[in-house]
């Protein structure tokens, strides 16, 4: 298994039999929805499409997997999404075969996709790796695998001696408690990789996620086994050390 990190996504590429590039949470149309919450900024949709296409060209995978939340509005599709999703998928089709695992923001996404581009939302296997968006209980067949998911938008805070120095998207890698699966099988350990959001406006502190977990997967991640990685694969310490920063600090 070969692993590569691409900070411009952020994305991860795993090579087993095939080279597969994984991104998550593009949230096209977020600007339109932000207007309802008081932010009036022009859409950056086209910039995002260009960035993703450039990323694909750089990584040169065999397949691209988008781990859900390609669109933003629930329910329905805004004019911005209608226009920009069309642009995104037609740009991608020109350069790469891709799959989408639908997320909680994706009702209606099928209108933009060919049936063969859609994957099961409960999860499926591609080249021995489990894939799903991450808002649902994962399918039985993912047990014992390496699972990749989006949904959580993990963001880490790095501190130095004086204060907060950097907020960065991050990957979280750790073991999953097998209780999550309806029927536990005596299999190998299940490992989970949470992929940061590909949308440059979103991000959710991991302190918050694991203090009050909001998804089956975040509830089942065994914190003591989990590690934090920066978008370029830099090791950023254990998840435990970030959740319990106080205890590791000295005065």
């Amino acid at each position: 298994m070969n692993i590569d990190f691409f900070p411009s996504g952020p994305a991860v590429q795993i090579e087993e039999e095939k080279r597969i590039l994984f991104i998550a949470d593009i949230h096209m149309g977020i600007e339109y929805e932000l207007q309802k919450h008081g932010f009036f900024i022009r859409t950056r949709g086209q910039d995002r499409i260009t960035r993703i296409c450039d990323l694909v060209k750089e990584a040169d995978p065999d397949i691209l997997v988008i781990l859900g939340d390609v669109k933003h509005r629930i329910p329905g599709t805004s004019y911005q999404e209608f226009y920009e999703l069309g642009n995104l998928f037609s740009a991608l089709r020109k350069i790469i075969p891709f799959y989408v695992t639908p997320g909680n923001h994706d009702p209606g996404i099928e209108e933009f996709l060919k049936p063969e581009e859609m994957r099961k939302k409960e999860g499926s296997i591609i080249d021995q790796v489990g894939i799903l968006h991450g808002h649902t209980i994962p399918d039985e067949e993912l047990q014992g695998k390496l699972i990749l998911c989006g949904h959580h938008h993990p963001t880490v805070t790095l501190r130095d001696q004086v204060g907060v120095a950097l907020r960065s998207p991050c990957f979280i890698l750790g073991e999953v408690d097998s209780h999550i699966f309806p029927e536990e099988m005596d299999s190998e350990t299940t490992t989970l990789l949470m992929i940061p959001s590909c949308n440059e406006m979103t991000g959710y502190g991991i302190e918050k996620t694991f203090h009050s977990p909001f998804s089956p997967l975040s509830r089942s991640l065994i914190i003591e086994t989990a590690e934090v990685l920066l978008p370029d694969g830099t090791y950023a310490g254990s998840l435990h050390s970030h959740l319990h920063y106080d205890e590791t600090a000295t005065t």
């Binding site: 790095l158 130095d160 001696q161 950097l166």
Partner: peptide
Amino acid sequence: QIPPPTADQAVISALKHR
């Protein structure tokens, strides 16, 4: 608080701390 100018330095600081 004036943070260091690059992400690189922030990462190094965090590594030193760890």
